[in-house]
């Protein structure tokens, strides 16, 4: 699977990349929303893993942007974030309305949990 990881923190981005590559996924790592959108234009991924706390445009704006184009609407998005707002049920529901496949709060999610969440999105 080709996975686009949008992660503002360099070290966390690299660890996420290592974890996914160890599972034989191809990973494209981007640090901000704009460069992630550029990638979608040229190299469409099978899954997007998204941190909401990004520089400049935040992750929610990125999500709105992605969902506004018909050709990108089907791409499963996993929100994998340090933003504690995702623990609020109301915010979680709002993300679900944007077609988010899973919401993972980083402090509660081990590397193993992340690969399991990705595994659940792989078609059998």
């Amino acid at each position: 699977m080709k996975i686009l990881v949008v992660e503002s923190d360099r070290i966390l981005g690299q660890t996420t990349q290592s974890v996914l590559e160890a599972q034989n996924h191809e990973v494209i790592l981007k640090r901000d929303a704009q460069s992630a959108l550029d990638i979608l234009d040229n190299n469409m991924p099978d899954i997007i893993i998204l941190e909401l706390q990004l520089g400049l445009h935040n992750g929610v704006e990125f999500l709105y942007e992605v969902r506004s184009y018909p050709e990108w609407q089907h791409i499963p998005v996993i929100v994998y974030t340090l933003n504690a707002r995702v623990l609020d049920e109301r915010f979680g529901k709002a993300l679900n309305q944007l077609g988010v496949a899973a919401v993972l709060y980083k402090p509660h999610t081990s590397a193993k949990n992340l690969t399991q969440a990705v595994g659940q999105l792989i078609p059998i």
Binding site: L12, S18, L82, K106, A111
Partner: peptide, 14 residues
């Protein structure tokens, strides 16, 4: 502090 702690946790987990 959450970020460096998370970095340590994930790096050591790997």
């Amino acid at each position: 502090l959450k970020t460096p702690l998370l970095q340590i946790a994930r790096l050591s987990e790997l």
